[in-house]
Amino acid sequence: MTLSYVHTPKFVSTSLHIMTCLEVPVHIFGIYIILWKTPESMKSVKWSMFNLHIWSMSLDLTVSLFTSPFVLFPAIAGFPLGLLKEFGVPAAAQAFLVVSIFAGVGVSILAIFENRFYVLFAGNTVWRFIRIPVLFVNYALCFLFFIPPYLTIPEQRVALEEVYRKLPSDLPPSITNGPVFVLATDATYALISIFLITCFIIGEIAMCIFFIWLNTKCLAKRIHLSRTTLKMQRKFLNALHVQMYTPLIILIVPLVYIAYSVYFNVYDQASNNLCLIMISFHGLASTTVMVLIHKSYREACIDIFCIKTQYKTNPIPESRRNSFVTYVPRSKIRDDVIVVSHQITY
Rank of each mutant, 00 (worst) to 15 (best):
I175A: 00
I28K: 03
P173M: 06
E86G: 04
P80G: 09
C199G: 13
I333W: 14
I175D: 00
L52N: 04
S15R: 06
K221G: 08
Y189P: 08
M278F: 13
P315N: 08
N215C: 09
M207W: 05
I132F: 05
T309Q: 13
F195Q: 09
C199N: 11
V98T: 04
D186N: 14
E161G: 15
L225A: 03
R128W: 06
G104A: 15
I252N: 06
C199Y: 11
E86Y: 08
A220K: 11
G88I: 01
E299F: 14
P149T: 04
S4P: 05
F11C: 08
I54V: 11
K308G: 01
Y327M: 09
P39I: 07
F324N: 14
L61I: 07
E318N: 09
V12G: 01
Y297Q: 06
L135G: 00
W36M: 12
G82V: 07
V163W: 00
I130T: 11
F143M: 07
E155S: 06
V105I: 13
Y346Q: 09
V262Q: 02
F200W: 11
W36Q: 12
A75D: 05
P254V: 02
L191R: 09
F102C: 02
I279Y: 01
N115W: 00
V266W: 05
N177C: 11
G203P: 00
I344W: 07
S100N: 02
T326Q: 10
H241A: 15
F211M: 12
A187Q: 09
N238A: 11
